[in-house]
């Protein structure tokens, strides 16, 4: 592994005096497809949100390719949990995907033909082109997740942060999404995913971070995805059989 895409130093986040993340140091190499795993309340979403500046950490710093995140925003795309927005908002699927172009447009400038073309291409990639004019409340959960993914793809970033993209989607959508993530990795992008299903970690990801308020371990799945780390993270005697 060559360059470090994301570097987190001494990150500490607290709600109401209670630490949610404690002194996290993390280095994510370029080009990995990484899962962040840990029990509920381990701070997985919080980690992503504080890396992205959505939450304010008490201490710590984040750098993207060696520079502060603020200067590197165009390199980073975010896929929030789909439950974090109101899907009854009056807009269409295409319009939501177009929002991915707003960052590069900057203030005031409106999206034009070029942006629309990019959005349509992203919709095609996630297999949602036929739904471009659909009101977003009339999309299924899996389709909404694909729309969010397309919105991030439009940003054409180098690093993708995704908060539980597999939550509440059916098997075919899950396969479609993981194929897109794998093709992103193939294109040299770095993908960081908050993930819940431990069974699929070895199959989907090549890199993993165990988190439970503190960082337990981080590294290649084949080296560190073992019973020892799972037990340390989940606090119970956790046994998974990893296919050799």
């Amino acid at each position: 592994m060559s360059k470090i895409a994301v570097k987190v130093d001494d990150l500490t986040v607290a709600y109401n005096y209670k630490p949610v993340l404690w002194d996290i140091d993390l280095e994510i190499p370029e080009g990995v497809l990484m899962a962040i795993v840990g029990p509920n309340g381990a701070g997985k979403s919080t980690l992503i949100k504080s890396i992205l500046g959505i939450l304010k950490p008490i201490a710590g710093s984040v750098s993207i390719y060696g520079k502060p995140y603020d200067k590197q925003r165009p390199l980073v795309a975010y896929v929030p949990q789909k439950g974090s927005v109101d899907w009854d908002f009056p807009t269409t699927a295409l319009d939501v995907v177009m929002m991915g172009t707003y960052g590069s447009l900057g203030w005031i400038k409106r999206p034009g033909q070029k942006e629309k073309k990019a959005a349509l291409e992203a919709l095609e990639k996630v297999g949602m082109l036929a739904f471009k004019g659909r009101q977003i409340s009339q999309l299924s959960g899996g389709q909404q997740q694909r729309i969010f993914l397309a919105r991030a793809l439009v940003q054409n970033a180098s690093i993708y942060f995704m908060d539980e993209p597999f939550q509440g989607v059916d098997a075919s959508t899950e396969i479609a999404i993981i194929n897109i993530l794998k093709s992103l990795r193939k294109a040299g992008k770095t993908v960081i995913v908050v993930h819940h299903d431990l069974q699929t970690v070895p199959e989907y990801f090549d890199w993993v971070t165990f988190l439970n308020v503190k960082k337990i371990a981080t590294g290649p799945v084949r080296d560190i995805f073992n019973d020892d780390n799972l037990t340390k993270t989940y606090g119970i005697n956790y046994k998974v059989s990893i296919q050799e």
Partner: peptide, 15 residues
């Protein structure tokens, strides 16, 4: 455009 995206998804707008 800024109003619309803020109304729909504030966290994403920040990023």
């Amino acid at each position: 455009k800024e109003f619309k995206i803020l109304l729909f998804d504030e966290d994403y707008t920040k990023t």
